[in-house]
Amino acid sequence: MLHTVNKSPYTHSTLAECSKVATPGSSILLIEDGVFAVQAGGAKVVDLNEIMKDKTVYALEPDIKARGISKVCEGVKVIGYDGFVDLAVESKSHAWV
């Protein structure tokens, strides 16, 4: 299953709640303010490495660029809207809004 998260982990518990619920093997796509989670060297309010042990984390490139995030955490797969559509075709999706 694909889970989308659009809130910053610094102001919302959305990513934390999503990562507890998402089953091993599922994908989490960070979009909009959700991409603030991928800034390398950021305080680990939510540990992406822990999440990536059994899930795949994606982040939307246009949102990363729009926010001036220059260094993305290793292991995060950066995709565009095309990639978002492909993920939404591969499996059902749920939006953690």
């Binding site: 299953m1 619920v21 089953t23 059902k92 749920h94």
Partner: peptide
């Protein structure tokens, strides 16, 4: 548990937040 909710979500045709 959260994991159980996650498992049940996987069985759904659609989930709405």
């Amino acid at each position: 548990s959260a994991a159980e909710i996650g498992r049940i979500m996987e069985e759904q045709h659609a989930t709405i937040p």
